[in-house]
């Protein structure tokens, strides 16, 4: 008797959940949206989400709850997203190159790059190569000349994690300049900083926000963006110094596979409006984040383009799983 009752109740619950899945976009959203952050609180993804939070709530008209799902360099969170209900009520921040490189390197990362439904790509942080203020390297040229003079591998470059944009950027510089720098991965952008402050590595390949935060401690040799950034106008690009390197991390949000396009559009519009809010923009610019405005199609196309690029680079580096 009891068992039947429980069974009926469970069945009803299942139906209710399934029913919620086919909600149409006309009345979306009508309840709280969970916005998962795949990295530690306090990291770039978290800060961006926190800057967006209030404005986003206003634009969507419902509560947005920021939650953390941390593990496997983001893989845990994205694998979870790939299995969430495609109703638009669960979304997650996503990063390039991570979502491309993880499936490429691991084979099975629990999700596939193109399976995640892009909603919006809202920021990028170009790589910046930096050394200590008291180091003898005044320019990128000095640095490269020094690397050439020394045996390969002696000059060390710290950065955030393996297969991050920092890692790839260092590898690209190696190739472009014909040198061999040893890339030393650290647990995150922040934890690589003390290594340069203490002089344990020769240089740091890090992201643009660090170029603002540490402007009185470090010297910035080059930035890997197309053009110089407005907030750090005196940092020259790699390109203008003769090395064709444009590399950095891109951040955005994605929905589970199979989310209806109409729902994605509602979310994308809300993010677009949020990112164009002057207050949000000001905070982003000020902290060294480069704002991007790529809607669902544009970001999907961008991911595809980057996939081709990264696959080539990774093959050259011999890092693709056979």
């Amino acid at each position: 008797m009891k068992r039947t009752a429980v069974g009926v109740v469970v069945l009803l619950a299942a139906l209710a959940i399934a029913g919620a899945g086919v909600s149409n976009a006309a009345n979306f959203p009508k309840k709280r949206i969970t916005y998962n952050i795949c990295f530690n609180p306090g990291g770039e993804s978290d800060i961006t989400a926190r800057i967006q939070e209030q404005v986003l709530k206003k634009n969507l008209g419902v509560d947005v709850s920021i939650q953390y799902k941390i593990g496997g360099g983001g893989a845990l969170c994205w694998a979870d997203l790939a299995q969430s209900a495609p109703d638009g009520y669960t979304i997650a921040g996503h990063n390039l190159p991570h979502i491309i490189l993880q499936p490429l390197e691991m084979g099975d990362a629990g999700y596939k790059t193109l399976e995640l439904k892009n909603i919006y790509m809202f920021e990028s942080t170009p790589n910046v190569l930096m050394v200590r203020k008291d180091s003898p390297f005044k320019t990128l040229k000095d640095f490269i000349a020094y690397a050439k003079k020394n045996p390969p591998g002696v000059v060390t470059v710290g950065g955030s994690g393996t297969s991050s944009a920092n890692d790839l950027g260092t590898a690209e510089l190696n190739k472009a300049a014909g040198i061999k720098l040893s890339y030393v991965p650290f647990g995150g952008t922040g934890s690589a900083v003390p290594a340069l402050l203490g002089g344990h590595v020769t240089a740091l390949m890090s992201y643009s926000p660090m170029a603002i935060q540490y402007k009185d401690k470090f010297r910035f040799l080059a930035i890997a963006s197309e053009k110089r950034m407005d907030v750090i106008p005196d940092v020259p690009t790699f390109k203008e110094q003769g090395y064709d390197i444009v590399e950095g991390a891109y951040r955005g949000v994605a929905a589970p596979p199979g989310t209806p396009d109409a729902v994605v559009k509602v979310l994308a519009d809300a993010f677009e409006k949020t990112m164009k809010d002057p207050e949000v923009r000001k905070k982003m610019d000020h902290n060294g984040f480069k704002t991007e405005f790529m809607g669902p199609e544009a970001s999907q196309a961008f991911v595809k383009k980057k996939m081709v690029e990264y696959e080539t680079i990774m093959k050259e580096l011999g890092r693709v799983k056979k």
Binding site: P41, G42, D46, Y214, K215, D216, K282, K283, H286
Partner: peptide
């Protein structure tokens, strides 16, 4: 501590030695 710093950035302040 990292969360604390993140809190600073939400004000538009740049954490860091400066």
């Amino acid at each position: 501590m990292a969360v604390l710093l993140g809190g600073l950035m939400m004000y538009g302040l740049q954490p860091g030695p400066m």
